[in-house]
Structures are given as C-alpha cells and as structure tokens.
Write a protein that binds this DNA or RNA. Structure first.
Lengths: 191, 191, 191, 191
DNA sequence: AATGAATGAGTTTTCATTCAT
DNA sequence: CATGAATGAAAACTCATTCAT
C-alpha cells in the first residue's frame, strides 16, 4: 500500500465508522485497525482526531460544492435551471449516501468546530445566495429576506435527502421527484 | 432540596450542558456538581447517562407536542389555522431556546438511540399528518406524497427556528415572521 | 413479616446469593430487594456486610457441629462409630447443599476474616482431635502427627462432599458410599 | 524494562497481591503501581482483570503440571513411583508457596470462571486417572470408582500442602513426610 | 514513513453505608 | 423498628496521543 493509499484508507474508514457509530464511539485505534494501518500511522497523516474530522468534513463539502457548481446553467429559464440544480444535488446524495449521512449527522454537531462548519456553510450557500438574488431581480422569486430564504433552501434540501435516503426506491418515481421540486419551487417563487 | 427538586435540577443542568458542550463532552460528574448533588444521586434517578439523555429527549418532545396540540384550531379557515400553528411552534422555540437548540442538535445525532428518536418523531409528526390530509381533502393543499410533505414541514420548521434563534430580533419584525410562514404555506398549498 | 422473619429472610437470601454469585458480586441492595426488605433494614440487623457474612459463617458452622456432635457414639466399635460419623457428616452436606457449597467456597476465602475462619475450624476440628487420640490410644489408628491427620480428615471430607454434590445420585449407591468411607478409614487405620 | 519484563512484572505482582489481599480487594491500579507500569499498560496486555486472573491461573496450573509430569517414572515398583510423585508434588508447593497458596484460594472460588477451573482440573487430574487405572490393573490399588479416587487424591494433596505450608519445618522431618505419604497410599492401596 | 507498546488523565458506574422521615 | 433517597469514595476500563525502534 502506498502512502496515498494509506491516507485514503484512513479517510474512507473514518467516514464509514463516524457515520455508523458516531464520532465519539469511534476510537482512532479502531479506524487504524479497520484501515489496515498501525495506530501511529493515523497520527502521521493527521495531527489529531479532530483534525481528521475537520479534513473529512471540508473534503466532502468541497466535493459536493464542485459537483453542484458544475451543474449551474444559465439557460434563461430560471425554473428549469433550478430544477436541474435541485435534482443534481439530490442525485449526489443518492450516489453518495454515506457522505450525505455524514453531512446530516455532523452539520449541527459539536463534534466539528463551529468555525469549520461555518466556513463550509458559507462556501456552499454562497452561490445559492447569488442565484436567489438573480431570481429576485428577474421578478421570479419572492422578495423575502435573503438569509431566511437560504436557510429555508438548506432545510428543504436536508428534508428531501432524508426522505429519499430513507425510501431509496422513491427517487426513481417521477411523481416523488417532481413533488420534491414543486415543494421547493413553490416556496421560493413569487406569488 | 426535596426529591423532585434534585431530579429536576439534574435534568435542567443536563439540558444546559448537553446543549452548550455536547453530550460526550459533558461528564456525569460535571452535571452532578453543577446541579448541586452527589454523583451517585444522578445514578439513583437515572440508570445511566444514556437513559438520562433519552428521558430528557422524550420529556422535551412531549412538552413541545402538548403545547402545539393545544393550539390546534378548526376555524374553517385552514390557512389562518395553519399560520397560527406555525407561529405558535416558532414562538415555543423562541420561548425555549435551550430546548429548541437541544432538539436541533440531537434530533439527528447518534447520541440518542434510534428507536427513541423515531418514537418521538412519530408522536409529534403524527398530528401533522392528520392536518395535511384534511387540507388535501379540502382541496387546499397539494396532493404530494404525505410522508414527503411531513418531512418537508419538519425541515422548514428546523430551518426557520435556526434562523430566528440566530437572529433573535427578527422574530419581532412582521415582515420576517410573515415571510417565514409564506415560504411554508406556498410550499404546501395547491397551485 | 415479623422482625425475626425479616432477619431470617436476609440471612437466607444472603446465603443463596453468596453461593450463586460470590460475596463481592452480591450487593447489599440486591440481598435486601430479594429478601423483600428495605436496604436500611439490613443494616439494622447487621452492622456491616462483613458482619453479615461472619454471622452466616459461624451460624452454619455451628449448625453443622451440633448435628455431627449429636451423632457421636461410643459403642466400643471404633470403626463402626467412625463410619456412622462419616456418613452423618456427608448426609448433612447432601441435606444442606447450599450450606455445604458455602462452606466449600468460603472456608479458604479472604472474604471471611482469618480469625473467624480459625475460630470455626477449631470449634469443629476440636472434637475430631479427641476422637483421633482415642483411636490412637486404643491402637486402632496410626500414630501419625495429630495435626496432619486432622488436616487430612478435613481434606478427605471436602473431597467426598464435592464428589457427591457433583454426582448426587451416587450417594444412594452403597458401593460409592462404602468406598468413600473405606478411603478415609484405610488412610487413618493402623497398618 | 522490555516488553516481556512489563507483562511479567504485572503477572508477578498480581499473583502476590491476589494471594495476600484477595482478588476483589486488589485494584488493577494497585497492581500496575506496584509493578511499575501505567494502568493502561495492564489493559494493553490483558483485556480485563478477569482475563488477567484466568491467564495467571492457567499459567500456574500448566507450570505445575509440567513439573509433575516430568517426574513420572515407571520403575516397576508402583509404590516407590507413587511416593516419588507425591513428594515431588509437595516439594513443588514448598518451592512455590505463593503459587500453591493461590491454588488453594482460587481453585474453588467464583473469582475464576467455572470453565477455566474445569479446563485446568481436567488437564492436571487427567494423568492421575491414568496412573490410578494402571495401579488397579496391577491389583495394587483398590477398585473404587475412579472419579471418587481422583477427587480424594486432590483433597489429600490440598490438605497435605496446607499442613506443610503452615508448618514449614515439618517437611524436612522424615517422620512427617513419610506419614503424609502413608496416609495417602493406605487410602488408595488394595486392602 | 511506519509501527504498536506504553502512557495516565479522564470516564461512567457501583455500592456499602447513613439518616431524615 | 423500617424505609429508601442520598452520598462520595473507589473501581474498572478507555483512548487520544507519544515515541523508541
């Protein structure tokens, strides 16, 4: 196993165990063991357990952000573009259930330092803010306070992924997929 | 201090510390000390730290559920009734910020046994389901899958309380209060 | 339940639990609960857990000693008298398996203060010494050092009761009963 | 101190303390301290206090069994061979008083899991059974039930070592040494 | 870089005993 | 006498982290 492999094995194992057992119930020793490396090796790659967690959190957030931003279009039809984005975001969650679960569990948890969480949130919700403002400028979205709308987007996204992860077959059914976007869009759209 | 007082002091202290420091970062010894009782007393009332947590969780959920259900009306005007309910629920969160914070942190956390979380969710979201169905029957709410709508309600509620707790003054401003309900109502309402 | 009843219930329960779980694995709370009394009540009757143990130990030893001494005969036929005594002693063990088990477990254990154990041993092995000396004087028993013979009697008795308690049916078979006495008698008898 | 040294120091210290204070009165912290290692080190080598005890028990039993089996002869003179074995066994006890004391205290104690005790007993008493059967086949030993004779051997051995450990000088006196064997041999020998 | 034995502070939990009712 | 809530010292055990090899 190469250096990179070991580091990746540690990250993968940590993700799996943090999600299935929780951060505190997962010892660094158990991560190392399951990853097939020595306990000391973990601390060669990450200065502490907390730093491992932060690294994991930021990495996953970045991965998600990259994926989503690549899907941003400007076709002129805002509703269509929004639907594409909404479905892409949920699709990512369906493709990466472990990472989404991780996100659900730790976005609000004190296991991750507050500045790290905020840093991640701003990075991701930042482009959301831009999109919302564009929509308002075009007169397509309601003129509610921006921060409130951003939080609402986030909350609806968490609820939708929760629903589709818990009921995996439903995401394939157009009725459910469309309903999830309709809830979201109607909330945001100008009366 | 009487018997009830001690048990209550333990519960109050645990709530405060679990919210401010997290479940795992809060030792039973620190709870006992801050509550002014001996460590043994905590274990006299609760068989384990986990059971204390479960008790706290179920108690707070019940308190919330009682409060909300008392606010359910049937005036004939569904939208008005829904607004009253929505505002009552957020008002409860503003009146009980510690409990709401607790709810935000631990609703998804592995610190609470999954069966306890589900039991609590079902108890609370149960009446929500009934209300949604009534609205659909009256042709006022959209005919999306019920479970999806329930999860969406929950997600929007969490997002709204997050927003108003983080920006406490906004709840007094009618513009924000109305916007938060509008987002919610438009999501649910029949096109 | 009268006072005497409660005290007896505590003693009976303690005997059962000490034998089945061990002294240290048995909490005073569990004794009290199983005996149907309050935890405080145990400490009204016995100043401490150790004293309860000592009381139990001495009581059972006394009960055994009384039973055996009542069986001492002087028919003129030492071998017959010895056999009667041997069988009586084992019979007591078969009739009181819990007490015999208690004896086996705690005769050597540090759970009982050494002075209590010695006091009990002397009380019981005392009359054994007298009998052995009589047999030696009559030329029927070997002239080995007395203390060695006493310890040997005790060891053979423990071994025999261990065997018959572990194989309860065997005590009814004359072959086994007689063999157990033969082993004992031949060890002691003058060549 | 090397790795092996630390593990051995823990075992040696545990033996001393378990014998002098008893299993339950000996804390793992006191073992570690007296052995000159950290508390964690004890648990690095043994998963629990019980496992440490079991390891100790099986190790000592094995040591004894090895010693004794090395002394088995077949000179053709069974009585001589038996005497040699008997004296070797007691000599081991005299040379290893701590281990013998450990054996006396814990052979019957619930501090050691019953399956561990039985495993040890079978391992050691196994060869005894073979020897007894050979003696019976040669017509030199009485035809009593085998298991009863085995238990009796064990009981007499415990009694003899108890006696000689309590009176250390006596083992040097031929009279006592021979008497102890005579008691044993006469019990077993064919009338 | 990789290893894994060693560390010791910190955690949850137990339990004999007390004492106000 | 009887009760059982309260006590707090002490126990077993965990685990992130270090460091000699």
């Amino acid at each position: 196993m190469t250096r990179k492999d070991k580091k990746q094995a540690i990250l993968d194992t940590a993700l799996t165990l943090f999600v299935s057992q929780g951060f505190y119930a997962t010892s660094t020793a158990s991560i190392a063991k399951k990853a097939g490396v020595a306990t000391g090796t973990l601390f060669h790659h990450f200065p502490s357990k907390d730093e491992l967690m932060n690294h994991l959190f930021l990495t996953i957030k970045q991965e998600f952000a990259n994926e989503i931003q690549a899907q941003i279009k400007d076709s002129g039809d805002l509703k269509n573009d929004a639907e594409h984005l909404w479905c892409s975001a949920i699709q990512w969650a369906m493709d990466n259930p472990l990472k989404q679960e991780f996100f659900q569990q730790y976005s609000m948890s004190p296991s991750i330092a507050i500045e790290i969480r905020e840093q991640a949130m701003n990075g991701i919700l930042g482009f959301m803010g831009t999109l919302l403002q564009q929509g308002q400028a075009q007169g397509l979205l309601a003129n509610y306070p921006l921060a409130l709308m951003q939080d609402n987007c986030h909350g609806q996204y968490l609820a939708a992924t929760r629903y589709f992860l818990d009921n995996p077959g439903k995401w394939q059914e157009p009725e459910h997929k469309q309903a999830s976007f309709a809830l979201f869009w109607n909330a945001m759209a100008k009366g």
